[in-house]
Design a protein around this nucleic acid. Structure first.
Lengths: 108, 108
DNA sequence: TCACTATTTAGCCAAATTGCCAAATATGGG
DNA sequence: CCCATATTTGGCAATTTGGCTAAATAGTGA
């Protein structure tokens, strides 16, 4: 694998990595509806605020969300709504997996 | 976050986690064209065969690829081609990021 | 300025990931 | 059966990630 391909794939992998955590997926889902501040996301996720802040910085670092400070709060919003299209296929993958496992269990 | 939501998000995150590695992305890209055996993928990736095998088992565990043993070789193929649709958006995200960084650098 | 709130950052530790080597497993050919 | 090849598995060290607490930073209002 040449260096250029390696670089391209690493950048892409980083985008997926940003989505590879339940809390970060919840953040993306919620921001799909409307912008939210850190404290609102903290409530939804139920983790320490510092933890949520770190998750947000991961998503921001990957270019998926934007932040804007207004008064004391920092509001985040989805910058790349195209990532929402991922979820259909992800759901399809999971559905297929579960179906197959179900059939495996019912073998006789 | 209730347990059901947590479970749903964890399953989804696992699908993204499976794609969150350069070598595994290369595997998915290559299998999009045609099925390949481990040794062919090993050449493309340039890592130890055991390493490639482990990557393949991650993708298989996530339900993204299928394997079939024929003779000495094990051939893998893409089971969920819908994941290829991800790549358009991922490319868009990266393009936007790079564009913004470029503009930042050229500020004066 | 001082106190208060919202957020980020730093530091720490546990857990997960990655990649190699070596060993185990499976298959095909003499 | 014996040997060679293809693949998987187990084990280990190095690195990364995740989440907490505590400290630092920033904005608001008295």
């Amino acid at each position: 694998m040449d260096a250029k391909t390696q670089a391209r794939l690493t950048m892409r992998a980083n985008v997926f990595k940003a989505l590879a955590h339940p809390s970060r997926l919840l953040i993306v889902e919620q921001l799909a509806h409307k912008e939210l501040c850190v404290c609102q996301l903290r409530e939804m996720i139920g983790a320490d605020m510092s933890t949520v802040s770190k998750h947000l910085s991961v998503l921001k670092g990957a270019g998926m969300i934007q932040d804007e400070k207004r008064g004391l709060q920092v509001y985040y919003r989805l910058k790349m709504p195209c990532v929402l299209r991922f979820f259909d296929c992800v759901g399809e993958v999971i559905e297929t997996n579960v179906k197959e496992q179900w059939e495996l269990v019912n073998l006789r």
